[in-house]
Amino acid sequence: MSSRAAVNVMRSAAAERNKDHIFQVLKEHLVSDSRLFALEVASGPGQHVVHFAEHMPNVTWQPSECDKDSLQSIAGYIAAKESKNVLQPVFIDASQPLSKWAGGSLIPQSCDLIVNINMIHISPWSATEGLFKAAGVLLKPGAIMATYGPYMINGMLTPESNVRFDQSLKERCPEWGIRDTADLEKLAKENALTLEKMVDMPANNKVLLFKKTSQ
Protein backbone atom coordinates (compact mmCIF):
# COMPACT_ATOMS: atom_id res chain seq x y z
CA MET A 1 0.00 0.00 0.00
CA SER A 2 1.44 3.37 -0.98
CA SER A 3 2.18 5.91 1.73
CA ARG A 4 -0.02 8.48 0.00
CA ALA A 5 -3.04 6.18 -0.01
CA ALA A 6 -2.32 4.91 3.50
CA VAL A 7 -2.97 8.38 4.92
CA ASN A 8 -6.65 7.95 4.07
CA VAL A 9 -7.17 4.48 5.50
CA MET A 10 -7.88 3.00 8.92
CA ARG A 11 -6.70 -0.41 10.01
CA SER A 12 -8.61 -2.92 12.11
CA ALA A 13 -6.49 -5.63 13.72
CA ALA A 14 -9.57 -7.86 14.02
CA ALA A 15 -10.31 -7.48 10.31
CA GLU A 16 -6.75 -8.50 9.46
CA ARG A 17 -7.13 -11.62 11.60
CA ASN A 18 -10.51 -12.74 10.33
CA LYS A 19 -10.62 -11.63 6.69
CA ASP A 20 -9.18 -14.83 5.25
CA HIS A 21 -11.24 -17.09 7.53
CA ILE A 22 -14.41 -15.36 6.33
CA PHE A 23 -13.23 -15.49 2.72
CA GLN A 24 -12.81 -19.26 2.93
CA VAL A 25 -16.46 -19.63 3.97
CA LEU A 26 -17.65 -17.32 1.20
CA LYS A 27 -15.57 -19.15 -1.41
CA GLU A 28 -17.05 -22.48 -0.38
CA HIS A 29 -20.62 -21.23 -0.73
CA LEU A 30 -20.24 -19.01 -3.78
CA VAL A 31 -18.97 -21.47 -6.35
CA SER A 32 -19.41 -19.91 -9.78
CA ASP A 33 -17.34 -18.71 -12.71
CA SER A 34 -20.11 -16.33 -13.78
CA ARG A 35 -20.07 -12.61 -13.15
CA LEU A 36 -21.68 -12.01 -9.76
CA PHE A 37 -22.65 -8.98 -7.69
CA ALA A 38 -22.08 -8.72 -3.94
CA LEU A 39 -23.18 -6.01 -1.51
CA GLU A 40 -21.30 -5.55 1.74
CA VAL A 41 -23.38 -3.74 4.37
CA ALA A 42 -21.27 -2.00 7.04
CA SER A 43 -17.87 -2.43 5.40
CA GLY A 44 -15.91 -0.81 8.24
CA PRO A 45 -12.46 0.42 7.19
CA GLY A 46 -12.55 -1.58 3.92
CA GLN A 47 -10.01 -4.34 4.59
CA HIS A 48 -12.51 -7.15 4.06
CA VAL A 49 -13.92 -6.04 0.73
CA VAL A 50 -10.57 -5.50 -1.01
CA HIS A 51 -9.35 -8.87 0.27
CA PHE A 52 -12.47 -10.66 -0.96
CA ALA A 53 -12.28 -8.87 -4.30
CA GLU A 54 -8.64 -9.81 -4.84
CA HIS A 55 -9.44 -13.51 -4.45
CA MET A 56 -12.86 -13.49 -6.16
CA PRO A 57 -12.25 -11.52 -9.37
CA ASN A 58 -15.52 -12.69 -10.96
CA VAL A 59 -17.48 -10.83 -8.28
CA THR A 60 -18.21 -7.10 -8.45
CA TRP A 61 -18.26 -5.77 -4.90
CA GLN A 62 -20.30 -2.84 -3.60
CA PRO A 63 -19.04 -1.69 -0.18
CA SER A 64 -21.08 0.60 2.05
CA GLU A 65 -20.95 2.45 5.34
CA CYS A 66 -22.81 5.08 7.36
CA ASP A 67 -19.64 6.54 8.90
CA LYS A 68 -17.84 9.31 6.97
CA ASP A 69 -14.33 8.30 8.06
CA SER A 70 -15.00 4.68 7.13
CA LEU A 71 -16.27 5.70 3.69
CA GLN A 72 -13.01 7.59 3.13
CA SER A 73 -11.00 4.63 4.38
CA ILE A 74 -12.77 2.21 2.03
CA ALA A 75 -12.03 4.50 -0.91
CA GLY A 76 -8.41 4.66 0.22
CA TYR A 77 -8.09 0.86 0.27
CA ILE A 78 -9.68 0.58 -3.17
CA ALA A 79 -7.18 3.09 -4.55
CA ALA A 80 -4.18 1.60 -2.76
CA LYS A 81 -4.99 -1.95 -3.87
CA GLU A 82 -6.02 -0.75 -7.35
CA SER A 83 -9.10 -2.94 -7.02
CA LYS A 84 -10.78 -3.20 -10.41
CA ASN A 85 -13.83 -5.11 -9.21
CA VAL A 86 -14.75 -2.94 -6.20
CA LEU A 87 -17.16 -0.07 -6.74
CA GLN A 88 -16.81 3.19 -4.82
CA PRO A 89 -18.47 2.96 -1.39
CA VAL A 90 -22.02 4.17 -0.91
CA PHE A 91 -23.81 5.51 2.15
CA ILE A 92 -26.08 2.98 3.81
CA ASP A 93 -27.64 3.30 7.24
CA ALA A 94 -29.11 -0.17 7.74
CA SER A 95 -31.72 1.14 10.17
CA GLN A 96 -33.28 3.24 7.38
CA PRO A 97 -35.79 1.97 4.79
CA LEU A 98 -34.33 0.37 1.67
CA SER A 99 -35.55 3.33 -0.38
CA LYS A 100 -32.85 5.41 1.34
CA TRP A 101 -30.02 2.90 0.87
CA ALA A 102 -27.40 4.23 -1.57
CA GLY A 103 -29.81 6.97 -2.57
CA GLY A 104 -32.40 4.43 -3.67
CA SER A 105 -30.15 3.07 -6.43
CA LEU A 106 -30.15 -0.61 -5.43
CA ILE A 107 -32.22 -2.90 -7.65
CA PRO A 108 -34.49 -5.66 -6.26
CA GLN A 109 -33.14 -9.19 -6.80
CA SER A 110 -29.78 -7.85 -8.02
CA CYS A 111 -27.53 -9.41 -5.36
CA ASP A 112 -25.89 -12.81 -5.57
CA LEU A 113 -24.43 -12.25 -2.11
CA ILE A 114 -24.85 -9.87 0.82
CA VAL A 115 -22.11 -9.76 3.45
CA ASN A 116 -22.43 -8.19 6.90
CA ILE A 117 -19.50 -8.41 9.30
CA ASN A 118 -19.48 -7.35 12.96
CA MET A 119 -22.50 -5.04 12.73
CA ILE A 120 -25.39 -6.87 14.32
CA HIS A 121 -24.07 -6.76 17.89
CA ILE A 122 -22.78 -3.17 17.76
CA SER A 123 -25.87 -1.45 16.36
CA PRO A 124 -29.50 -1.02 17.40
CA TRP A 125 -31.91 -3.86 16.66
CA SER A 126 -33.51 -1.60 14.05
CA ALA A 127 -30.33 -1.94 11.95
CA THR A 128 -30.64 -5.73 12.00
CA GLU A 129 -34.31 -5.47 11.05
CA GLY A 130 -33.37 -3.17 8.17
CA LEU A 131 -30.63 -5.54 7.02
CA PHE A 132 -32.97 -8.53 6.84
CA LYS A 133 -35.78 -6.57 5.19
CA ALA A 134 -33.36 -5.34 2.53
CA ALA A 135 -31.90 -8.80 2.01
CA GLY A 136 -35.38 -10.18 1.39
CA VAL A 137 -35.76 -7.69 -1.46
CA LEU A 138 -32.24 -7.42 -2.88
CA LEU A 139 -31.17 -11.07 -2.98
CA LYS A 140 -31.91 -13.21 -6.00
CA PRO A 141 -33.87 -16.40 -5.27
CA GLY A 142 -31.43 -18.95 -3.87
CA ALA A 143 -28.79 -16.31 -3.12
CA ILE A 144 -27.02 -16.02 0.24
CA MET A 145 -26.58 -13.46 2.99
CA ALA A 146 -23.57 -14.13 5.23
CA THR A 147 -23.35 -12.46 8.63
CA TYR A 148 -20.33 -12.72 10.93
CA GLY A 149 -19.87 -12.10 14.64
CA PRO A 150 -20.63 -13.54 18.07
CA TYR A 151 -24.10 -15.01 18.64
CA MET A 152 -26.28 -16.39 21.39
CA ILE A 153 -27.66 -19.81 20.47
CA ASN A 154 -31.25 -20.36 21.54
CA GLY A 155 -30.82 -18.36 24.74
CA MET A 156 -27.36 -19.70 25.61
CA LEU A 157 -24.31 -17.45 25.38
CA THR A 158 -20.91 -19.12 25.65
CA PRO A 159 -18.05 -18.99 26.48
CA GLU A 160 -17.61 -16.67 29.46
CA SER A 161 -15.57 -14.24 27.35
CA ASN A 162 -18.63 -13.65 25.14
CA VAL A 163 -20.78 -13.09 28.24
CA ARG A 164 -18.35 -10.41 29.41
CA PHE A 165 -18.21 -8.94 25.91
CA ASP A 166 -22.01 -8.73 25.80
CA GLN A 167 -22.05 -6.93 29.14
CA SER A 168 -19.43 -4.44 27.96
CA LEU A 169 -21.41 -3.74 24.78
CA LYS A 170 -24.58 -2.99 26.76
CA GLU A 171 -22.63 -0.73 29.09
CA ARG A 172 -21.40 1.26 26.09
CA CYS A 173 -24.88 1.42 24.56
CA PRO A 174 -28.07 -0.20 25.90
CA GLU A 175 -29.26 -0.82 22.34
CA TRP A 176 -26.22 -2.97 21.53
CA GLY A 177 -25.64 -6.60 22.48
CA ILE A 178 -25.03 -10.11 21.17
CA ARG A 179 -28.16 -11.32 19.40
CA ASP A 180 -29.88 -14.69 19.67
CA THR A 181 -29.93 -16.85 16.56
CA ALA A 182 -33.55 -17.74 17.38
CA ASP A 183 -34.53 -14.08 16.96
CA LEU A 184 -32.53 -13.86 13.74
CA GLU A 185 -34.20 -16.98 12.36
CA LYS A 186 -37.61 -15.45 13.12
CA LEU A 187 -36.61 -12.22 11.39
CA ALA A 188 -35.26 -14.20 8.44
CA LYS A 189 -38.51 -16.11 8.02
CA GLU A 190 -40.46 -12.84 7.97
CA ASN A 191 -38.33 -11.75 5.02
CA ALA A 192 -38.31 -14.91 2.87
CA LEU A 193 -34.96 -16.13 4.19
CA THR A 194 -33.95 -19.35 5.89
CA LEU A 195 -30.92 -20.04 8.09
CA GLU A 196 -29.09 -22.67 6.09
CA LYS A 197 -25.90 -23.11 8.10
CA MET A 198 -23.86 -21.90 11.07
CA VAL A 199 -20.10 -22.11 10.65
CA ASP A 200 -17.86 -22.00 13.71
CA MET A 201 -15.05 -19.47 13.39
CA PRO A 202 -12.00 -18.51 15.46
CA ALA A 203 -12.35 -16.27 18.54
CA ASN A 204 -15.81 -17.65 19.42
CA ASN A 205 -17.48 -16.15 16.35
CA LYS A 206 -19.69 -17.70 13.70
CA VAL A 207 -20.75 -17.12 10.11
CA LEU A 208 -24.50 -17.47 9.63
CA LEU A 209 -25.62 -18.27 6.10
CA PHE A 210 -29.17 -17.24 5.18
CA LYS A 211 -30.65 -18.30 1.85
CA LYS A 212 -33.34 -16.41 -0.03
CA THR A 213 -36.29 -18.64 -0.78
CA SER A 214 -37.84 -18.85 -4.24
CA GLN A 215 -40.71 -16.58 -3.23
Score class of each variant (00 low, 15 high):
Arg35Ile: 00
Leu36Tyr: 05
Leu36Thr: 02
Gly44His: 08
Gly46Gln: 11
Gln47Ala: 11
Gln47Asn: 08
His48Cys: 08
His51Gly: 04
Ala53Leu: 08
His55Ile: 00
His55Cys: 00
Met56Asn: 04
Pro57Glu: 12
Pro63Trp: 15
Pro63Met: 06
Glu65Ala: 07
Glu65Arg: 04
Cys66Gln: 12
Cys66Pro: 00
Cys66Tyr: 11
Asp69Leu: 10
Asp69Lys: 13
Asp69Tyr: 09
Ile74Gln: 11
Ile74Ser: 04
Ile74Ala: 08
Gly76Cys: 05
Ala79Thr: 08
Lys81Tyr: 15
Lys81Met: 12
Glu82Leu: 05
Ser83Cys: 10
Asn85Leu: 07
Ile92Ser: 02
Asp93Asn: 15
Asp93Trp: 03
Ser99Asp: 09
Lys100Phe: 03
Gly103Ala: 04
Leu106Tyr: 07
Ile107Asp: 11
Gln109Ala: 15
Val115Asp: 10
Val115Lys: 06
Ile117His: 09
Met119Phe: 03
Pro124Gln: 06
Pro124Asn: 10
Trp125Leu: 06
Trp125Glu: 02
Trp125Thr: 01
Ala127Val: 01
Glu129Lys: 15
Lys133Ala: 15
Lys133Thr: 12
Leu138Phe: 12
Leu139Lys: 12
Lys140Glu: 10
Pro141Ala: 09
Met145Tyr: 13
Gly149Ile: 03
Met152His: 02
Asn154Trp: 10
Gly155Leu: 05
Met156Val: 14
Met156Glu: 15
Glu160Phe: 05
